[in-house]
Nucleic acid binder design. Structure first.
Lengths: 148, 148
DNA sequence: GTAGTTGCAAAGTGTTTGCAGGCAG
DNA sequence: CTGCCTGCAAACACTTTGCAACTAC
């Protein structure tokens, strides 16, 4: 499974990746996957559409949203919810957390390997943890905030 | 500072609380504060408006949003961003984290006291941590998820 | 060929804004 | 009185949906 940034991904690689996940590789899906996986950044639907349509118009808004939802279901990407106004999509499906720059809206990965949470209470009856997301909201060091 | 659920809060208590935070206590603001602090749940703007207007219509949508934004600025409440479709407002301003029931949308507090995070990498240059939010997404124990 | 995919535009949410009238101090 | 609040409705941004035309296999 492809995980980390790789600007040299070919369309064929993408088609393969999609097929591996049970997704019919169409032109639009390949372009969207390519955008996500070659940049390997956290992009919003808007940014993805803009990026895909940079040269010539290749997809519509509806297709971008449909495709992202599909990728999500198939476990190809994850969504990151930090900004009330939009969802970010994350091509990194390995367990990890995020720094969120409140001023710029920039999102950065934190490797989960080194991190550990202790003292988490028991889950409520009959519940299972789906995921644990840690978001460290950061900002430039003026206007007071607590130090880590 | 008032922190925990208290169904017997009076309007006067609310007026005082608002004044303590430098907020002019108007009828609408008192009702909104009362709803938040007496229930001490995580409510969305919609739910707050519905709750406040239960008996007779007392506030408009605009006023609810304005007031919540004001409370936020003044540090009376916090916002919790877990659901891409809406923001929740949290009257508990003490450091704490959340369980988020993905099926029901229900949000539950986790006391921060007992918890500890280790291995958090250094913040990027010139950055200060604003807050650290941990969201444990949970669901009823069918349809596999990882155990905590 | 046929099921599945796409694009458009229109509808749907939650949230924000502009402005006239109203209320607190 | 005077400035801040309120309410309405219209504007907004993001996301979803319905449906006819199209494309991968």
């Amino acid at each position: 499974m492809l995980k980390h940034a790789n600007p040299n991904l070919s369309r064929e690689d993408m088609a393969l990746l999609l097929r591996e996940h049970g997704i019919t590789p169409t032109h639009q899906r390949i372009e969207i996957a390519h955008t996500l996986f070659s940049r390997c950044e956290h992009l919003s639907a808007d940014q993805i559409m803009a990026s895909v349509n940079l040269r010539h118009s290749e997809t519509s808004k509806a297709t971008v949203y449909n495709t992202l939802k599909l990728f999500l279901e198939k476990g190809l990407i994850r969504e990151v919810i930090v900004d009330p106004s939009k969802v970010f999509y994350d091509p990194n499906t390995a367990p990890h957390h995020h720094f969120f720059n409140v001023e710029s809206g920039e999102l950065t990965d934190i490797e989960a390997d080194a991190m550990q949470i202790s003292g988490l209470p028991e889950l409520p009856q009959g519940m299972v943890a789906d995921s644990v997301d840690i978001i460290v909201r950061i900002r430039p060091s003026h206007s007071g905030g607590l130090h880590a």
